Simulated scan of single mutants.
Amino acid sequence: MTVLSEQEFRVLNGAHLKKMATAAELASAVGLDVAVVEPVLNAAAGSGLLMAAEGRHLLLPEGTSAVHEYYRTAYEAMRSNDLVLAWYERFETVNEQFIKQVSEWQSTDGDERVQSRLIKTVERLTKNLRELTPIVPRYETYVDRFGGSVARIDQGEKDFVCKPTIDSVHNIWFEFHEDILTVIGRPRDT
């Protein structure tokens, strides 16, 4: 089993959460400089943890196992931490609202009122994430990413609501949800 350093975990976890991404996309997603990310990706490709194809990176099964092992060891105490588990239960309520709002936004072709409620929900999550950043400092990157996407939406770029090929609030939310589930050791269908 490959044991990852914190930096390797951040980069490979970014690849795990994004599925297929360029070095620049991963650097942005994990809050590291691309000059730091590229050598990690190259080393991981060399050791069979991921593959690169046309400038995009895909985590392979051994890489996924290494990422999951890091989660298990680094976040083991959080799986029984009452503060974190209570935070997650509150998140699930907000998550249900967000999913409904995204569906409504899509079905109304981007209605401004629905979009406003959706953005308020994203801002609520961002505020709530501040409770977890002292425990999981890398979650500050989600706060930054949400802020950047909301700013783009505020400037009239509606694609940043849920376009699948950019860092939209929907994509960031999806990645965060998978991340927090893995931190607390719950499967996605729970």
Rank of each mutant, 00 (worst) to 15 (best):
M1S: 15
L4V: 02
S5C: 07
S5V: 07
E6Q: 13
E6G: 03
Q7V: 13
E8T: 01
E8I: 02
E8F: 01
R10P: 00
R10K: 15
V11P: 05
V11L: 09
L12P: 04
N13G: 06
G14S: 09
G14P: 03
A15S: 03
K18E: 13
T22S: 13
T22C: 06
A24D: 14
E25P: 03
L26T: 12
A27W: 13
S28F: 09
S28K: 13
G31T: 11
L32A: 11
L32K: 12
V34F: 01
A35G: 12
V36K: 13
V37G: 09
V37T: 07
E38R: 11
P39I: 08
V40H: 07
V40D: 04
L41Q: 03
N42D: 14
A44R: 00
L50R: 00
M51L: 15
M51T: 15
A52K: 05
A52M: 15
A52E: 13
E54D: 14
G55M: 08
G55F: 02
H57C: 02
L58C: 08
P61W: 06
E62H: 06
T64Y: 01
A66Y: 01
A66P: 01
H68A: 02
H68S: 09
Y70D: 05
R72P: 00
R72D: 15
Y75V: 06
E76L: 06
E76Y: 02
M78V: 00
R79P: 06
R79V: 04
S80I: 11
N81M: 10
D82S: 15
V84H: 05
A86G: 04
A86I: 06
Y88I: 03
Y88R: 11
Y88C: 06
E89W: 08
F91A: 05
T93I: 14
T93W: 03
E96T: 15
F98V: 09
V102C: 08
V102Q: 02
E104A: 13
E104F: 04
Q106M: 13
T108A: 11
G110W: 07
G110P: 10
E112T: 05
E112F: 05
R113Q: 10
V114A: 00
V114L: 01
L118C: 02
I119A: 01
K120L: 07
R124P: 00
K127F: 12
N128H: 09
E131C: 00
T133V: 03
T133L: 07
P134V: 11
P137K: 05
R138N: 07
R138M: 09
Y142E: 12
D144C: 04
A151I: 03
R152I: 01
D154C: 00
D154H: 11
E157R: 08
D159K: 14
F160C: 08
C162P: 00
K163N: 14
T165Y: 15
T165N: 14
T165A: 14
D167R: 07
S168D: 08
S168V: 08
I172T: 12
I172D: 00
I172C: 10
F174R: 14
F174L: 15
F174W: 11
I180H: 03
L181H: 10
L181K: 13
L181S: 11
L181E: 15
T182W: 02
T182V: 00
V183A: 04
I184R: 03
G185F: 01
R186I: 12
P187H: 15
R188S: 13
R188N: 09
D189W: 11
